[in-house]
Computed example of a mutant assay.
Amino acid sequence: MTTFPRTGHAVAADGTRLAYQWHGTDRPLVLLAGQANDHTWWNRTRGDFPSTITMDYRGTGDSDAPDVAYSTTGFAADVIAVLDDLGVDEADVYGTSMGGRVAQWVAARYPERVRRLVLGCTSPGGTHGIERTNEVRLALAQRHSSEAREALEDMMYTPAWRAANPGPYTVLGAHGMPPHAVRGHLVASNGHDAWDALPRITAPTLVLHGDDDVLAPPGNAPLLAGRIPGARVRVFNGARHAYFDECRPESSAVVMEFLG
């Protein structure tokens, strides 16, 4: 049964304060958002699950924004700091986009903390991953211009869905991020490379993707599944990067069935 959220701040090893939100009372599902986004990424979908933990990455939302190097491994350590603060020894983890990159490290480096893993619209990174084009990178780097945001909307959702659901959308970037944090998130996502670590993931894993995704090309889904022992893949036809939003409730039902 969903309850009012429990909110607070965990403290990372370097003293950074990390905001979190826990809705519900059952075994939690940790939901990890995309690059340069905070917990509002999940506003439309978190209610599909009985108990969720979300967080604001460092540099976003109500978390601190230290001017230091950011990385997906560092974000994974921040996730563990939040779980430690909440007294959660084991959780299910669902990461999308950069959150899927972070989730790979959570599962590979802290296997005892992850019961089941869902990786959505993401990539193993590095030389083995199928990366976005330079045009897409430019749109992400210049996300505050109206043209770039319109292009990002088009990468997230199909035109037909946007026409029926005019927004506002909560997956286009967190408000109020300082420029150094925006750059830090971009560098962290671009620098991700978990290829060698993926075979160490022991949690049962489900890989989800839209087949019209240019932000994280869909060819990454079989790459991930091929590296993670026993992983399964589900592809949503015609969906773009925000499949988890546009393909509701089907995609949430797939996740719930997998989590059992």
Rank of each mutant, 00 (worst) to 15 (best):
G8H: 03
G8S: 04
D14N: 10
T16V: 13
Y20K: 01
Y20D: 00
W22Q: 10
D26I: 03
R27P: 13
L29V: 02
L31I: 00
Q35Y: 10
H39P: 04
T54M: 06
M55T: 01
M55V: 01
R58K: 08
D62K: 14
P66F: 09
P66R: 09
V68F: 07
A69M: 11
F75T: 01
A77G: 11
D78E: 07
V79F: 02
I80K: 05
I80R: 12
A81S: 15
D84R: 06
D85G: 15
G87T: 03
G87Y: 04
D89L: 13
E90L: 15
A91E: 00
A91P: 00
D92A: 02
D92F: 00
Y94A: 15
G95S: 02
R101C: 15
A107G: 04
A107Y: 02
Y110D: 05
P111S: 05
E112G: 15
R113E: 00
R115N: 10
L119V: 07
T122L: 07
S123V: 12
G126E: 03
G129K: 08
E131Y: 09
E131L: 13
R132G: 07
N134T: 13
L138T: 13
A141I: 11
A141H: 11
A141C: 09
Q142I: 09
E147R: 13
A151Q: 14
A151P: 03
D154L: 12
P159C: 08
W161Q: 09
N165K: 09
N165F: 06
P166A: 06
P166T: 06
P168A: 05
P168W: 05
T170M: 12
L172N: 02
G173N: 08
G176K: 06
G191A: 04
D193I: 11
A194C: 10
W195Q: 12
W195N: 12
W195G: 13
A197R: 14
L198N: 03
I201F: 03
T205L: 01
T205W: 00
V207F: 03
D211M: 02
D212W: 11
V214Q: 12
P217M: 06
N220K: 08
A221P: 04
G226I: 07
R227Y: 08
G230M: 00
R232E: 13
R232L: 11
V233E: 05
N237K: 15
R240K: 15
F244Y: 13
D245V: 15
D245R: 10
R248W: 05
R248N: 09
R248C: 07
P249W: 02
A253N: 13
V254D: 13
M256Q: 15
E257T: 15
F258K: 05
F258M: 07
L259F: 06
G260H: 14
